[in-house]
């Protein structure tokens, strides 16, 4: 589904930081991949490269066989198939909840008002906030906002969902509600790539865990293997600190 071949990415702000060093990976249809690692390890950059929010310096990413760094590729059609959920929700504050979930359906999918509102209401019910459809983002709690953000991404009927630390900005009591929505999504067979610090979530739903540090993939494997007998020393150290 997604093939990542030897991507490099260096930032120069303010100093030279090697965010990705020779990262390759393959994400299969229906797979739930959890990317973990200490902060600054390049896991968010890796995720953001998958829909070209960041452009890799060298290397190639194929999404359904389409090279997304090729200038001839229409990135908008690729992105329409990939939902993204951000750490800071990034809901559109000037639009109602219904408007947030409908606007891309209108502009990108060109759905009729009736269709897109039906879809939006169905998804809002699914994430448990159907009653807030006419409220504005500022009236919602963090957990509710993040569930709206998930509904907004799902409204485009994406083939894959990217989660960039979706629970890191939430109060502890709200993390559960967001993780429940994500677990339900995984059970439905959605292809997912999640950058997260929620080890419980990784253990429960991941098909594969990738551990990154200093821009490199250090170790990857099934959650059982990864959490019970990690091989690399850096992985062991990280797991010791976090668990």
């Amino acid at each position: 589904m997604i093939e990542v071949n030897n991507i490099y990415k260096t930032f120069f702000v303010p100093h030279e930081v090697k965010a990705l060093v020779d990262v390759s990976n393959k994400i299969e249809l229906g797979e739930v991949v959890v990317v973990i690692g200490p902060s600054g390890s390049g896991k968010s950059t890796f995720l953001r490269c998958l829909n070209r929010l960041e452009t890799a310096d060298t290397g190639q990413i194929l999404v359904d066989g389409v090279d997304i760094f090729d200038p001839k590729t229409n990135i908008n059609t690729v992105r329409a198939e990939m939902g993204m959920v951000f750490q800071s929700f990034n809901l559109f504050p000037h639009l109602s909840i219904l408007g947030n979930v409908s606007i891309a359906q209108k502009l990108v999918r060109k759905r009729s008002k009736k269709d897109r509102e039906k879809k939006a209401m169905m998804l809002l019910e699914k994430v448990g906030i159907g009653d807030k459809a006419h409220a504005y983002p500022s009236n919602l709690s963090g957990g509710q906002q993040q569930r709206v953000a998930i509904a907004r991404a799902l409204a485009m009927d994406p083939k894959i969902m990217l989660f960039d630390e979706p629970t890191s900005a939430l109060d502890p009591e709200m993390i559960g509600e967001v993780l429940d929505v994500m677990k339900a999504l995984a059970k439905e067979g959605m292809t997912m790539v999640c950058v997260t610090h929620e080890m419980g979530f990784a253990r429960e739903v991941a098909d594969r865990v990738i551990f990154m540090d200093e821009g490199q993939v250090i170790e990857e494997g099934t959650p059982e293997h990864f959490f019970t007998n990690p091989e690399n020393d850096r992985t062991k150290l990280f797991l010791n600190q976090i668990l």
Binding site: N51, L53, N76, T77, R79, A80, M82, G83, M84, F86, S88, N90, L91, F92, P93, H94, I103, A104, L107, V108, A149, R152, A153, M156
Partner: peptide, 27 residues
């Protein structure tokens, strides 16, 4: 406007001018 706004708009498949007109300029 927070850069996350245009990222959210662009990552849902809107083009640059749609994101500007519908998301950034109103705010």
């Amino acid at each position: 406007i927070h850069p996350g706004q245009i990222e959210a708009a662009r990552s849902s498949g809107m083009n640059y001018f749609q994101s500007m007109y519908h998301i950034i300029l109103p705010q």
